[in-house]
Design a protein around this nucleic acid. Sequence first.
DNA 1: TATACGATCACCT
DNA 2: GGTGATCGTATAC
Length: 205
Amino acid sequence: MVSEHMRLGREFYQRDTLTVAKELLGQRLVRMMDDGQRLAGIIVETEAYIGEDDQACHASHGRTPRNTVMYGPAGLAYIYFIYGMYYCLNVVTEQEGFPAAVLIRAIEPTEGIARMQAHRQGRPLHELTNGPGKLCQALAIDRSLNGCDLCTSPWLFIELARQDEPLIAASRRVGVRGDTLARERPWRFFLLHNPFVSHQGRAPG
DNA sequence: TATACGATCACCT
DNA sequence: GGTGATCGTATAC
């Protein structure tokens, strides 16, 4: 008997990063606010960053204070501050000591939409969470949650929500510069035809 | 101490 | 299509 709101456990995140990136699609990201309000949405777009050999990965130059959470156990939230303005949410994968994570790039809002809209200056539904910086703003995710454990945290976690095998597409990762191999790796995954995927209408990659 | 720049976004032409 | 905002981090000096 599976609970209606079953949280994904450590075993889910400990697997191969590409598998986790694909299987996170269709699951439900949940953010509990201090006042008890529940904000949630279905994950529709992810990206994999795998190991020190991946030139696009924050760990490509080794371990630093900033990226140290990526070296921790699977299931931790790695949240970083970027471009002086935005946060991005990742889930750490694979074995402790190996730096890898999946960036959550977009969700489809399902609960607490009015609150998300307030966090996003009243923008329309389809612009609330269709990008990694936008979804962190909508869900009030910032540095204070960096390193928290998605397997036990009361504030941030992911629930099993996928119904049937979804139609998944892959493309190059967004915003990745540097060497050709890093740019061309098809490690971005998204639900086909979902309107909440980022960069709608643009060429993939 | 100084500098360059980034896993983005919103707004411009 | 292009670009400014805005600041933590890594790296160089």
